[in-house]
Nucleic acid binder design. Sequence first.
DNA 1: GTGAAAGCGCTAACAA
DNA 2: TTGTTAGCGCTTTCAC
Lengths: 336, 336
Amino acid sequence: MRMATIYEVAAHAGVSPATVSRVMNGTAVRPELETRVREAIALLEYRPSRRARSLRTNQSEMIALVIPDIQNPFFTALARGAEHVMRQAGYSLVLCNTDDNPDYEASYVQVIHDERMPGAIVAPSTTGTTFLPLLDEGRPVVAVDRHIEDPRADAVMADNFAGAVEATQWQFDQGSTRVACITGPPQVETARARAHAWHEVCARNGGALDEYLVWTDFQPGGGADALDYLLDLPIPPNGIVAANNLTAVGMLGAMVRRGINPGEITVSACEMLPYFSMPLPGLLTVPLPARAIGEHAARLLLARIEGDTSPAKNVVLNSEGEVVPAPSHSATPPAT
Amino acid sequence: MRMATIYEVAAHAGVSPATVSRVMNGTAVRPELETRVREAIALLEYRPSRRARSLRTNQSEMIALVIPDIQNPFFTALARGAEHVMRQAGYSLVLCNTDDNPDYEASYVQVIHDERMPGAIVAPSTTGTTFLPLLDEGRPVVAVDRHIEDPRADAVMADNFAGAVEATQWQFDQGSTRVACITGPPQVETARARAHAWHEVCARNGGALDEYLVWTDFQPGGGADALDYLLDLPIPPNGIVAANNLTAVGMLGAMVRRGINPGEITVSACEMLPYFSMPLPGLLTVPLPARAIGEHAARLLLARIEGDTSPAKNVVLNSEGEVVPAPSHSATPPAT
DNA sequence: GTGAAAGCGCTAACAA
DNA sequence: TTGTTAGCGCTTTCAC
């Protein structure tokens, strides 16, 4: 079925296409003409072609959401928040799942360019360099979860350091004496920040043991392997901090398989799976404000698209989703 | 930074824009010219504007994925599958989260129309009538998880009846004598199909009790409430079938809160949360092929976009993700 | 095989 | 205020 164009509407209403365009865009038009135009629009069920408008105005209502893993509930919640804000502003999100694969990332950067999208919300895999071409073109990019090392990119993060401090300190408050940490890949900023927090808190509480720090892939399997490694140490820990949601569930599963009773080893985790409401004794969950990060990033990106040229912002949210004045610990040490 | 157009490339190469277009699209061009053009393309970092091409050819590489809840792991896995297939074919997915809200659904239908997208993969909320306008325009729509009642729409489903039969039969095999069922809203097709299967299997095993069938909202809270209701019956069930993943976790959480030991009441569920690997005694999980549904739907949609005009397909996948010749039970009874 | 020219559907100068 | 016109960047006849 053919679609009505602005010319057909104009012909039906006996006006010029420009007048129809003005009615559509809210420019002043003589009331009499406006009614005729509106009638024609209704009659023909006219809806302007976004792509034609987009070509002409060089704008578009399509922005990219680039995330490593859409099956990770953290990113899913983030996506939800971003989608919610963006749809209210009339924008749609293009879902770009990268599997943490730089090639996939690059191919989506290409799509963003080719579709001339006005901006992107991006959780970069390791180094954010893939996205620099977008910034070079003047497309605003808001980094979430991990930074893009570029002064032009805004960033919205959780206060990873504070969260991990809380998770670790709780261990000592509970009476744990030997606290281990299962974190992610050393290239990943959040993994480093949380490991660093663990180290600091342990140092304050009698010292951190190097063999109690396990770098994994931030996946359930990695968490399970890490648990096995830790419990097979000559002197195993009696408290464990899991630095993300997936390592946490992997580790908990492994604990069950080893027949460890809940509470026997204290566990605290940065973020947990949604719906995982089992109130296990000896388990603390420090929530991450995933949804708020998505919402905040979306608002920031919208402002940039509207023309905000102020210096790049670096927003940090605490676990309640509130903006924290300054990151509790900005400098994260390099990987060991 | 300005973007190179086809005219600039043409000028640099000393050819006409048409020739550049031919090089880009693989039409035969004298090798000598082709090299000149390619050099100019590389030099200027030329990439054709998809939106301009799209306006001219009336095609687009942007298809919509309409799902009720991006935080539900079932839809997340489905999205992953669809994205994977689509990206390989050069298409991108626009994420349309509807919260099962018909208004949101309608607004996304509008977007699909306005952007002139060539098709959509859709998990309709209740009635699929919202999407009929798209079919009227000749845009292919593939329904997933739930049907759209229209002979023009393809559909890809799990074999919900078979899955629920398995979940219910297992209860009797385990020695349960009084088997209840917690399902979703009666308007939802999958909720009805699974309830129906439960009813049939119970009937074969000595009869189904009406008060053992609980209609919920398919959410964790609903599952928890249903458990409380069931266990407070004069004669409570000793086996429970949960008809979806979220009711299942809600119910399990409520069991823990009531201090019921694992295995005391047998539980079988259609689908479970990913990473929920606790091997609880007395718990059976019948997986749903979410990812395969997404992949299959994407392939079907691609074929339609390519011009396939064969009659609408109704694909049913078993829990392994394999195509089942015919639905194990096509007629689902109306809600009671 | 190649170029000139028209046109996809819209908006924005510019004139009237 | 309104209409005429040009043009966004591409593809595609149609001549050559």
